[in-house]
């Protein structure tokens, strides 16, 4: 079974800083990681491969340096890595991103075998829209299974798959036919430690690098800013309220008990 996992390289959010004057994000020197949600997808794919045989291909769309994340995925045990990178992709929103990824998936299918399962994470930690998975499913005409907490059963011969999907108030048990797109829920599994073999292989592996043209994209108006219906017009800091929080303990050295009593008093006398 050939399985493709889409992973995104993201800034390690804990370490992002905003420029105090220009209100822009200071990316320089910010370390990058594989989007943490995507590791659940990757691990699930590796488990299926270990069970049924086959290969796991990881795919990312990003700048050349996104190759780092692909190598990390190889070190966890993925078999092949594809980097889709081209300046035409700059400024892609989720519609343009899912277009580019779906074209790369088509090409991957032609070159390395059609994948019955494509995985994505639930969402990323930077854009955080959870829209790319459904976008890919629609464009590749894959049956869409989002927020999957558990894969219950896979029958490659019959082409069937059953999953538990997180819904409001409970788990929906769904049966569908492959090819499917699965967005994996966090906590569904625990990422393995790659073997030494994997680590050595990852360092030496050849990452497949495709431009837009390599991926068979002819219509560049569907890519990048031009292919993005959403337009970010304004970035701004939230307005502070006229007054800051009223400080209950203004006296230095007052005890925790006195402060607590003053706070309770203030809460009950406050008129919102």
């Amino acid at each position: 079974m050939h399985i493709v996992v889409c992973i995104k390289q993201v800034p390690d959010s804990a370490q992002i800083r905003v420029h105090p004057v220009t209100n822009t994000i200071m990316r320089q020197g910010v370390p990058t990681i594989i989007n943490p949600y995507d590791l659940f997808a990757l691990e699930e794919a590796l488990r299926l491969r270990d069970r049924f045989g086959g290969e796991v291909t990881v795919l990312t769309l990003g700048p050349p340096m996104a190759e780092d994340s692909l190598r990390k995925a190889l070190a966890f045990g993925a078999d092949r890595a594809v980097l889709l990178t081209d300046r035409f992709f700059a400024g892609s929103d989720t519609l343009a991103t899912s277009f580019a990824l779906s074209m790369a998936l088509k090409k991957i299918g032609e070159e390395f075998g059609e994948p019955p399962i494509v995985f994505t994470g639930k969402q990323t930690i930077d854009g955080d829209t959870a829209q790319v998975g459904p976008g890919i499913a629609k464009r590749r005409d894959l049956n869409q299974l989002t927020y999957v907490a558990r894969i219950v059963e896979v029958d490659p011969a019959a082409g069937e798959i059953a999953v538990e999907r997180r819904a409001e108030g409970g788990l929906q048990v769904l049966k569908s036919r492959m090819p499917v797109l699965i967005t994996m829920l966090e906590g569904a599994n625990e990422m393995r430690r790659g073997t030494l073999d994997n680590a050595l292989g990852a360092a030496r592996a050849q990452v497949v690098r495709w431009s837009a043209a390599d991926a068979g994209i002819e219509d560049l108006t569907k890519c990048g800013l031009r292919g993005s219906p959403t337009i970010v017009k304004k970035v701004f800091a939230p307005t502070a309220r006229a007054e800051k929080a009223k400080r209950v303990n203004t006296e230095e050295g007052s005890t925790a008990e006195a402060n607590a009593a003053a706070l309770v008093e203030a809460i009950f006398t406050r008129q919102p």
């Binding site: 989720t94 959870a130 829209q131 459904p134 976008g135 959403t230």
Partner: peptide, 17 residues
């Protein structure tokens, strides 16, 4: 989110999350 992503892609329009 499951529905909005599919509908926006089918309609090829923008979706703000």
């Amino acid at each position: 989110r499951d529905l909005a992503g599919s509908v926006a892609t089918t309609l090829l329009t923008g979706l703000t999350a």
